[in-house]
């Protein structure tokens, strides 16, 4: 088993929580894991990217080579495109279509979505909406994790156990909310 995943978004969106949860799930599954993230200056509303590698064999590099990522998982459509050169020929992009506009020159939103639609394997939908319907807006990162989960070689039960492990210190209600968002995201992705 091997999954090389690029996680992308804007600082503060909750991208790194996805990495933490998959990490917790992978550790339970006795998989090898490497996850490189960037702290410091880039977190002040700038773009954030993390390489997450899961494998049943030992992993050499902390960074994924370009053109080799199995998945790009993004909470923001322009951020999905920013890292597109990492995607492997068979790779898939899973992204929310909701733009995060905190710069004056944000490009035309429709053109971004059109460009994404030209790629062979794309799962793109409004994850904020699914989060609001199924749980709470703040859980849109768990909707994203759910939407990406069919393409990661970890069972949904194991990922849910990872969610429980990460959120349980914040109470049972938080665990339920986040698992509900995860399930809704997964169901939506599978229905597309």
């Amino acid at each position: 088993m091997k999954s090389d995943i690029i996680l992308a978004g804007v600082g503060g969106q909750g991208i790194l929580s996805i990495a933490t949860i998959l990490g917790a799930a992978a550790l339970r599954d006795n998989l090898h894991l490497k996850q490189a993230e960037v702290h410091g200056m880039s977190q002040r509303g700038g773009d954030v990217m993390s390489c997450l590698r899961l494998s049943s064999d030992p992993i050499a590099s902390d960074i994924i080579p370009t053109g080799k990522a199995d998945l790009i998982v993004a909470l923001e459509p322009m951020e999905a495109l920013r890292h597109i050169s990492w995607l492997s020929p068979q790779g898939r992009v899973v992204t929310s279509t909701v733009p995060f506009v905190n710069i004056p020159d944000y490009p035309d939103q429709q053109q971004i979505l059109d460009a994404l639609a030209e790629l062979p394997n794309v799962t793109a939908f409004d994850m904020d909406e699914v989060a609001k319907e199924s749980a709470t807006l703040r859980a849109s990162n768990m909707v994203l994790l759910g939407a990406a989960s069919p393409y990661i070689d970890l069972s949904p039960e194991k990922i849910e156990a990872g969610i429980a492990a990460v959120f349980s210190p914040k109470g049972e209600k938080m665990v339920e909310t986040n698992i509900a968002a995860f399930r809704a995201g997964r169901a939506k992705a599978l229905s597309l």
Partner: peptide
């Protein structure tokens, strides 16, 4: 062929820097 080749010409206009900022 790489998937990004399909949209390579458009990326320059569609992906702009997102510098960090004061909160």
């Amino acid at each position: 062929p790489h998937p990004s080749d399909l949209i390579a010409g458009k990326l320059k206009d569609l992906v702009v820097p997102r510098p960090p900022a004061l909160c």
